[in-house]
Amino acid sequence: MRQFFDSLVFAAVLVAIWQGLHWFAGDIAIASPGVTAERAMVLLGSPSFWGHFRETFSALGYALAIAVLGGMTIGLVLGLHRLSGEVAEPILVSLYSLPKITLYPLILLIFGLGMSAKVAFGAIHGIIPVAIFTMGAVKTIAPVYFKTARVLQLSRRQLVATVVIPAAIPELVSGLRVGFSLTLLGVLIGEMFASQRGLGFLVMNAIGTLDVPTMMAVVLLLALVAVMISAGLLYLDRRLHHRVA
Protein backbone atom coordinates (compact mmCIF):
# COMPACT_ATOMS: atom_id res chain seq x y z
CA MET A 1 0.00 0.00 0.00
CA ARG A 2 2.84 2.37 0.89
CA GLN A 3 4.55 1.67 -2.43
CA PHE A 4 1.31 2.39 -4.33
CA PHE A 5 0.90 5.70 -2.48
CA ASP A 6 4.53 6.64 -3.22
CA SER A 7 3.94 5.88 -6.91
CA LEU A 8 0.89 8.16 -6.96
CA VAL A 9 2.86 10.97 -5.32
CA PHE A 10 5.68 10.51 -7.82
CA ALA A 11 3.23 10.60 -10.73
CA ALA A 12 1.57 13.75 -9.34
CA VAL A 13 4.97 15.45 -9.04
CA LEU A 14 5.80 14.55 -12.65
CA VAL A 15 2.48 15.97 -13.87
CA ALA A 16 3.07 19.16 -11.87
CA ILE A 17 6.55 19.56 -13.38
CA TRP A 18 5.10 18.88 -16.83
CA GLN A 19 2.44 21.59 -16.36
CA GLY A 20 5.09 24.00 -15.12
CA LEU A 21 7.23 23.38 -18.20
CA HIS A 22 4.17 23.99 -20.38
CA TRP A 23 3.54 27.35 -18.72
CA PHE A 24 7.20 28.28 -19.10
CA ALA A 25 7.79 27.12 -22.71
CA GLY A 26 4.33 27.52 -24.24
CA ASP A 27 2.24 25.41 -26.63
CA ILE A 28 4.80 25.53 -29.43
CA ALA A 29 7.33 23.55 -27.36
CA ILE A 30 5.32 21.30 -25.04
CA ALA A 31 1.62 20.51 -24.80
CA SER A 32 -0.13 20.60 -21.45
CA PRO A 33 -1.02 17.36 -19.65
CA GLY A 34 -4.73 17.96 -20.31
CA VAL A 35 -4.32 18.55 -24.05
CA THR A 36 -1.98 15.56 -24.31
CA ALA A 37 -4.48 13.33 -22.53
CA GLU A 38 -7.29 14.49 -24.84
CA ARG A 39 -5.21 13.76 -27.95
CA ALA A 40 -4.24 10.38 -26.52
CA MET A 41 -7.92 9.47 -26.16
CA VAL A 42 -8.50 10.47 -29.79
CA LEU A 43 -5.59 8.30 -30.90
CA LEU A 44 -6.90 5.33 -28.92
CA GLY A 45 -10.15 5.60 -30.85
CA SER A 46 -8.38 5.69 -34.21
CA PRO A 47 -7.95 2.38 -36.12
CA SER A 48 -4.85 3.74 -37.87
CA PHE A 49 -3.12 4.25 -34.51
CA TRP A 50 -3.61 0.61 -33.58
CA GLY A 51 -2.06 -0.39 -36.89
CA HIS A 52 1.07 1.57 -35.99
CA PHE A 53 0.94 0.14 -32.45
CA ARG A 54 0.84 -3.44 -33.75
CA GLU A 55 3.70 -2.69 -36.15
CA THR A 56 5.94 -1.45 -33.34
CA PHE A 57 5.20 -4.23 -30.90
CA SER A 58 5.42 -6.93 -33.56
CA ALA A 59 8.92 -5.68 -34.36
CA LEU A 60 9.66 -5.53 -30.63
CA GLY A 61 8.51 -9.14 -30.15
CA TYR A 62 10.76 -10.46 -32.91
CA ALA A 63 13.71 -8.33 -31.81
CA LEU A 64 13.31 -9.29 -28.16
CA ALA A 65 13.11 -12.99 -29.01
CA ILE A 66 16.35 -12.74 -30.99
CA ALA A 67 18.05 -10.69 -28.27
CA VAL A 68 17.00 -13.02 -25.44
CA LEU A 69 17.71 -16.32 -27.19
CA GLY A 70 20.95 -15.06 -28.73
CA GLY A 71 22.10 -13.33 -25.56
CA MET A 72 21.33 -16.33 -23.37
CA THR A 73 23.16 -18.66 -25.74
CA ILE A 74 26.24 -16.43 -25.84
CA GLY A 75 26.15 -15.92 -22.07
CA LEU A 76 25.78 -19.62 -21.30
CA VAL A 77 28.61 -20.64 -23.63
CA LEU A 78 30.99 -17.99 -22.30
CA GLY A 79 29.92 -18.46 -18.69
CA LEU A 80 30.53 -22.21 -18.74
CA HIS A 81 33.98 -21.79 -20.27
CA ARG A 82 35.88 -19.62 -17.81
CA LEU A 83 38.78 -18.64 -20.08
CA SER A 84 36.49 -17.67 -22.94
CA GLY A 85 34.34 -15.65 -20.56
CA GLU A 86 37.31 -13.74 -19.15
CA VAL A 87 38.50 -12.89 -22.65
CA ALA A 88 35.08 -11.99 -24.05
CA GLU A 89 33.66 -9.98 -21.13
CA PRO A 90 35.68 -6.76 -21.68
CA ILE A 91 34.97 -7.03 -25.41
CA LEU A 92 31.23 -7.28 -24.76
CA VAL A 93 31.36 -4.33 -22.37
CA SER A 94 33.18 -2.27 -24.99
CA LEU A 95 30.62 -3.19 -27.64
CA TYR A 96 27.82 -2.33 -25.21
CA SER A 97 29.23 1.19 -24.79
CA LEU A 98 29.40 1.72 -28.56
CA PRO A 99 26.71 4.16 -29.81
CA LYS A 100 24.46 1.83 -31.80
CA ILE A 101 23.23 4.63 -34.04
CA THR A 102 26.61 4.53 -35.80
CA LEU A 103 25.70 1.03 -37.05
CA TYR A 104 22.40 2.11 -38.58
CA PRO A 105 23.77 2.78 -42.11
CA LEU A 106 25.23 -0.74 -42.09
CA ILE A 107 21.91 -2.18 -40.91
CA LEU A 108 20.12 -0.41 -43.77
CA LEU A 109 22.61 -1.73 -46.33
CA ILE A 110 22.17 -5.30 -45.11
CA PHE A 111 18.44 -5.41 -44.33
CA GLY A 112 17.00 -2.50 -46.30
CA LEU A 113 13.95 -0.56 -45.16
CA GLY A 114 11.02 -2.07 -43.33
CA MET A 115 10.39 -4.59 -40.58
CA SER A 116 13.69 -6.49 -40.89
CA ALA A 117 15.81 -3.37 -40.29
CA LYS A 118 13.78 -2.42 -37.19
CA VAL A 119 14.06 -5.94 -35.80
CA ALA A 120 17.80 -6.07 -36.42
CA PHE A 121 18.39 -2.64 -34.89
CA GLY A 122 16.32 -3.54 -31.84
CA ALA A 123 18.09 -6.89 -31.42
CA ILE A 124 21.59 -5.40 -31.44
CA HIS A 125 20.54 -3.09 -28.61
CA GLY A 126 19.31 -5.92 -26.38
CA ILE A 127 21.51 -8.92 -27.13
CA ILE A 128 24.69 -7.72 -25.40
CA PRO A 129 23.07 -6.79 -22.04
CA VAL A 130 21.28 -10.16 -21.95
CA ALA A 131 24.58 -11.93 -22.74
CA ILE A 132 26.43 -10.03 -19.99
CA PHE A 133 23.73 -10.73 -17.38
CA THR A 134 23.58 -14.40 -18.37
CA MET A 135 27.35 -14.80 -18.22
CA GLY A 136 27.43 -13.14 -14.80
CA ALA A 137 24.62 -15.39 -13.59
CA VAL A 138 26.49 -18.54 -14.62
CA LYS A 139 29.67 -17.33 -12.92
CA THR A 140 27.86 -16.80 -9.61
CA ILE A 141 26.43 -20.33 -9.44
CA ALA A 142 27.82 -22.19 -6.42
CA PRO A 143 30.63 -24.60 -7.43
CA VAL A 144 28.98 -27.38 -5.42
CA TYR A 145 26.27 -27.62 -8.10
CA PHE A 146 28.85 -28.36 -10.78
CA LYS A 147 30.61 -30.90 -8.54
CA THR A 148 27.31 -32.65 -7.96
CA ALA A 149 26.65 -32.68 -11.69
CA ARG A 150 30.03 -34.32 -12.33
CA VAL A 151 29.33 -36.94 -9.66
CA LEU A 152 25.98 -37.68 -11.32
CA GLN A 153 27.76 -37.78 -14.71
CA LEU A 154 25.34 -35.34 -16.29
CA SER A 155 25.88 -34.45 -19.93
CA ARG A 156 26.46 -30.81 -20.93
CA ARG A 157 22.86 -30.54 -22.11
CA GLN A 158 21.54 -32.00 -18.85
CA LEU A 159 23.83 -29.69 -16.87
CA VAL A 160 22.47 -26.61 -18.61
CA ALA A 161 18.81 -27.72 -18.44
CA THR A 162 18.71 -29.00 -14.84
CA VAL A 163 21.39 -26.98 -13.04
CA VAL A 164 22.56 -23.84 -14.82
CA ILE A 165 19.30 -22.35 -16.10
CA PRO A 166 17.23 -22.98 -12.90
CA ALA A 167 20.01 -21.53 -10.74
CA ALA A 168 20.47 -18.51 -13.01
CA ILE A 169 16.80 -17.64 -13.56
CA PRO A 170 16.77 -14.56 -11.22
CA GLU A 171 19.68 -12.95 -13.08
CA LEU A 172 18.22 -13.98 -16.42
CA VAL A 173 15.02 -12.09 -15.57
CA SER A 174 17.15 -9.06 -14.65
CA GLY A 175 18.82 -9.30 -18.04
CA LEU A 176 15.43 -9.63 -19.73
CA ARG A 177 14.21 -6.47 -18.00
CA VAL A 178 17.19 -4.44 -19.17
CA GLY A 179 17.11 -6.08 -22.60
CA PHE A 180 13.43 -5.20 -23.04
CA SER A 181 14.02 -1.49 -22.43
CA LEU A 182 17.01 -1.28 -24.77
CA THR A 183 15.38 -3.39 -27.48
CA LEU A 184 12.29 -1.17 -27.43
CA LEU A 185 14.57 1.86 -27.72
CA GLY A 186 16.33 0.32 -30.71
CA VAL A 187 13.06 -0.49 -32.49
CA LEU A 188 11.77 3.06 -31.98
CA ILE A 189 14.99 4.61 -33.26
CA GLY A 190 14.77 2.35 -36.30
CA GLU A 191 11.21 3.54 -36.96
CA MET A 192 12.20 7.17 -36.59
CA PHE A 193 14.95 7.06 -39.19
CA ALA A 194 13.73 4.66 -41.86
CA SER A 195 10.12 3.52 -41.62
CA GLN A 196 6.66 4.56 -42.72
CA ARG A 197 4.82 2.68 -39.99
CA GLY A 198 5.07 2.36 -36.24
CA LEU A 199 4.97 4.61 -33.20
CA GLY A 200 8.44 5.97 -33.90
CA PHE A 201 7.27 7.05 -37.35
CA LEU A 202 4.23 8.78 -35.80
CA VAL A 203 6.50 10.73 -33.47
CA MET A 204 8.80 11.86 -36.28
CA ASN A 205 5.85 12.72 -38.51
CA ALA A 206 4.32 14.84 -35.74
CA ILE A 207 7.64 16.61 -35.21
CA GLY A 208 7.88 17.34 -38.92
CA THR A 209 4.41 18.91 -38.99
CA LEU A 210 4.85 20.71 -35.64
CA ASP A 211 1.95 18.68 -34.21
CA VAL A 212 3.15 18.87 -30.61
CA PRO A 213 0.01 17.39 -28.96
CA THR A 214 0.12 14.27 -31.18
CA MET A 215 3.84 13.84 -30.61
CA MET A 216 3.44 14.02 -26.85
CA ALA A 217 0.33 11.83 -26.86
CA VAL A 218 2.17 9.05 -28.71
CA VAL A 219 5.15 9.37 -26.35
CA LEU A 220 2.80 9.29 -23.34
CA LEU A 221 0.98 6.15 -24.51
CA LEU A 222 4.25 4.46 -25.38
CA ALA A 223 5.72 5.37 -22.00
CA LEU A 224 2.69 4.02 -20.14
CA VAL A 225 2.88 0.66 -21.93
CA ALA A 226 6.65 0.42 -21.42
CA VAL A 227 6.37 1.33 -17.72
CA MET A 228 3.66 -1.30 -17.13
CA ILE A 229 5.71 -4.04 -18.80
CA SER A 230 8.88 -2.96 -17.00
CA ALA A 231 7.02 -2.84 -13.68
CA GLY A 232 5.79 -6.39 -14.21
CA LEU A 233 9.30 -7.60 -15.01
CA LEU A 234 10.69 -5.69 -12.00
CA TYR A 235 8.09 -7.30 -9.71
CA LEU A 236 9.01 -10.75 -11.04
CA ASP A 237 12.70 -9.94 -10.68
CA ARG A 238 12.32 -8.94 -7.04
CA ARG A 239 10.18 -11.97 -6.22
CA LEU A 240 12.76 -14.33 -7.70
CA HIS A 241 15.68 -12.65 -5.93
CA HIS A 242 13.73 -12.61 -2.65
CA ARG A 243 12.96 -16.32 -3.02
CA VAL A 244 16.63 -17.11 -3.65
CA ALA A 245 17.69 -14.98 -0.66
Rank of each mutant, 00 (worst) to 15 (best):
A37P: 01
T140C: 05
A37M: 13
F5T: 13
V187H: 08
G114Q: 13
F180R: 10
H81L: 11
A29N: 05
L106V: 14
L159Q: 05
L176V: 14
G122W: 00
D6Q: 15
V227H: 01
V218N: 06
K118H: 02
P129R: 08
R2E: 05
V227Y: 02
S230L: 14
G208E: 14
M1N: 09
M228V: 04
R243F: 05
P129Q: 09
I66N: 04
S84Y: 04
G112A: 14
I101W: 07
M192H: 02
G20K: 12
V212L: 10
A120K: 12
P33Y: 07
L188Y: 04
S46M: 11
V68D: 10
G45W: 15
Q158K: 15
A37H: 09
G20C: 08
V13S: 12
N205K: 13
V187E: 10
A31R: 11
R177E: 09
H52F: 02
Q153F: 00
L113Y: 10
A223Q: 04
G126Q: 08
I207W: 12
H52M: 06
R239G: 08
A37S: 13
F49M: 03
G45N: 14
I66C: 11
Y145T: 00
F10M: 14
V218Q: 03
P47I: 14
L176I: 13
F146H: 02
L64E: 04
G190R: 06
A31C: 13
V160C: 03
P90Y: 01
A29P: 00
P170D: 00
V187D: 00
A206W: 12
H22E: 07
G51R: 08
T36I: 07
V93M: 11
A63P: 03
G20D: 13
L14K: 13
R157F: 11
L60R: 01
Q153C: 01
S116N: 15
L80W: 01
F121L: 09
A142G: 13
F180P: 07
L95T: 02
G112M: 07
G179P: 01
L92K: 06
L182A: 00
V144S: 00
S195F: 09
L92Q: 01
Q196K: 12
L69M: 14
T148L: 07
V9K: 12
E38I: 07
F4W: 11
H125R: 02
Q196M: 13
Y235A: 09
S46E: 08
G114Y: 11
L222T: 08
P33A: 06
M215S: 08
A131F: 07
L184Y: 09
H125G: 10
Q196S: 13
L185D: 05
K139V: 03
R156G: 03
L234I: 03
I207F: 05
V138C: 02
I74P: 05
F4V: 11
I28P: 01
V244K: 15
A226L: 01
P99K: 14
R243V: 03
V178K: 08
S94L: 09
V93W: 02
K118I: 02
F57G: 10
L43S: 09
F133C: 06
L83G: 10
R82H: 13
S46R: 15
A63L: 07
A142T: 09
K100S: 06
P47M: 14
Y145I: 05
A67H: 03
L234T: 03
L220Q: 03
G71A: 06
V130P: 04
V225W: 05
L185N: 05
